[in-house]
Design a protein around this nucleic acid. Structure first.
Lengths: 153, 153
DNA sequence: TCCTAGCGGTTGTATATACAACCTCAGGAG
DNA sequence: CTCCTGAGGTTGTATATACAACCGCTAGGA
């Protein structure tokens, strides 16, 4: 069937030129790489630092709330929490009901956050540089758009 | 040391409000999820479809070139190629020199691309909706900014 | 010509991610 | 009170990602 060949070629051209997933993923990989490299000296990844910041910022909080806030699947969150706990950065308690849990940052987690802060700042600068002028602002707006629509679906 | 507590709290607040990695990753997860869900009926992921489009669009191409174009680490690319090959979507040949390789889409890969195309289009629409007006354009510009700086470092 | 630096790729290990299926418990319908 | 649905979490499995260390080959300098 030759039509497949032709259609595939047209589809590939359009995807290559316009696919938002390809671009969003490229951006995510690139920016994550900048932070991971900068944070390596303190032994924390970009994702882990994000979790620490959210857990500290939102006080005692359930895994589900964090997952929902960051649009992370609950099963992914479960394993992320495992790692953070294994590292001693967050404590996990039983929450209000027997089936719920509460996360709270530990003293060790605070130390990591404090040590990471200047490195995070460097990464933030480099990311702004890579994203171009206005790029950082665009990222904030995009994230806001997503948050705003989080209730939908 | 109480200063750690205070510094950690300030750092967390700033990261929570401004971290570009947190936001880029949120965007990537969300958009990827939209495409993965839409493409599920044809059994291909967003990342795999991206690879197919790039491999087809750039003709016979080495894994390293694709990796560089998408800012993917070469070892990651190696495993991605394994999966694509296992699925029968790309062929792998020895390239110009004995140590290099060439990727080429297969007929089966073309079929997947053709079948995925309308679903991809749906996802693209939904993504535009989620990103808000101007959001899609912003994503394109951000990706361009990154591409432009790919030569640096 | 021979050596060697470095390129292109693979493999070991670890994190990050999601879906499906499951478990336990809470809270409401009868 | 009993039952059952759904909320909150975990586990099995698979993809996606990166770093470090490695291997074979090539090309360029001594």
């Amino acid at each position: 069937m030759t039509s497949n060949t032709i259609r595939a070629e047209e589809a590939a051209a359009e995807m290559g030129g316009e696919c938002l997933a390809m671009r969003s993923r490229l951006i995510g990989r690139t920016i994550t790489g900048i932070y991971d490299a900068a944070l390596r000296p303190v032994g924390v990844t970009a994702g882990q630092l994000n979790l620490l910041a959210v857990v500290l910022g939102r006080g005692p909080v359930s895994p589900g709330e964090v997952a929902s806030y960051l649009n992370i699947e609950k099963s992914t969150m479960s394993r992320n929490v495992d790692r953070m706990k294994r590292n001693g950065w967050v404590g996990v308690r039983t929450g209000k009901s027997a089936r719920s849990k509460e996360l709270e940052i530990t003293e060790s987690g605070r130390r990591i956050l404090a040590k990471a802060e200047p490195l995070w700042r460097d990464a933030q600068d480099r990311a702004r540089e890579v994203l171009g002028s206005g790029g950082a602002e665009a990222v904030h707006q995009l994230a806001d758009s997503i948050r705003k629509r989080s209730g939908d679906k």
